[in-house]
């Protein structure tokens, strides 16, 4: 069977933006992308609900209480006011309003992350777990399927592995990104090296890591696959790495959305909905 993405360079008639319109994303890629977008939001917010049940992180096998890598808690000041405190690596920050203590001024609540960042909003660990595992069951199999698809269709090699000349030009690419000048014309047909490296990092490192560290938190999985404990240095280390990966996903999400917005938002959105992408004209100047 011919996959819709087998020939991504096919020119499509009806270019409206002046530039040549190419088929950029296969149906699978587009569906995967949007399902992932929903999964990541739900997984992040339900994950923060779960984190709030014990808002501290540790390295090693067990929770050496009082010796945490990160800890979010509340203290009552001399004036009787609740203060939210975040301790990380021995540094102490007052994070009242967001971390440790949040909510309406009349009804401040002691909680790790605030209600607007968690699913469900109120403190409800059992339900946070339900959302997390349901969407984990969508996210993880889709990730495996997509990685297999990328490898078997040759796209991993063709579209994502950087070529030698791209490595040589990486300095220039970084400079141009800083100036928000993005590739145009034929150069825009392929991902640039920064895109390639970012997508490779997310697909081959952060996403698999977040799934595996999630599994390492399961005592049953640890009995079946004890090597996971050795790989990550213990269950609490796995929990901490899981949290770091989630933070990396948030950073990726912010940068990704920002670059989508500044590099031609409608063209970018269209390419991820219909699959069609107009190569930006070489001549026309950038819209200010």
């Amino acid at each position: 069977m011919r996959s819709p993405g087998a020939n991504p360079d096919t020119a499509v008639d009806g270019a409206k933006q002046g530039g040549k319109v190419i088929k950029r994303h296969s149906l699978f890629t587009r569906v995967w992308h949007w399902v992932n977008a929903i999964c990541l939001v739900v997984l992040l917010m339900s994950g923060l609900q779960i984190f709030n049940a014990h808002p501290a992180l540790y390295w090693g096998n067990d929770s050496s209480f009082g010796d945490s890598a990160l800890s979010i808690f509340a203290v009552q000041g001399d004036d009787g006011e609740l203060r939210g405190i975040t301790e990380i690596g021995g540094l102490r920050f007052d994070t009242t309003g967001v971390l440790g203590v949040s909510g309406p001024a009349a009804d401040l609540e002691r909680r790790g992350f605030p209600a607007w960042a968690t699913i469900p909003g109120p403190r409800w660990l059992a339900m946070g777990r339900q959302w997390h595992f349901l969407f984990g069951w969508i996210f993880a199999p889709m990730l495996v399927a997509y990685l297999l698809y990328l490898i078997l269709s040759g796209q991993l090699w063709r579209r994502l592995i950087p070529r030698l000349h791209e490595w040589r030009g990486i300095g220039r690419t970084i400079r141009e990104h800083m100036l928000l000048r993005f590739p145009r014309g034929e150069e825009a047909r392929h991902y640039n090296i920064l895109q390639k490296l970012t997508y490779l990092l997310v697909l081959l490192a952060i996403a698999p890591l977040i799934v595996l560290t999630g599994l390492t938190m399961s005592p049953t999985v640890d009995a079946a696959w004890p090597w996971l404990l050795d790989l990550f240095g213990g269950r609490q280390s796995a929990r901490t790495i899981h949290f770091i990966c989630a933070t990396a996903f948030v950073a990726f999400f912010v940068i990704h959305v920002a670059l989508v917005l500044v590099s031609g938002v409608f063209n970018n959105l269209r390419s991820m909905i219909t699959g069609h992408y107009a190569l930006p004209d070489e001549e026309t100047s950038r819209h200010e």
Partner: peptide, 29 residues
């Protein structure tokens, strides 16, 4: 999300996911 959490449809989806977890973990172990 909070209202969905209590809806019959979501509750049955959550139950299915939990059953899937149990089946998968039992198969694995």
């Amino acid at each position: 999300c909070d209202r969905l959490s209590r809806s019959d449809g979501m509750v049955s989806l959550f139950d299915s996911a939990s059953a899937l977890t149990q089946t998968a973990q039992r198969a694995l172990t």
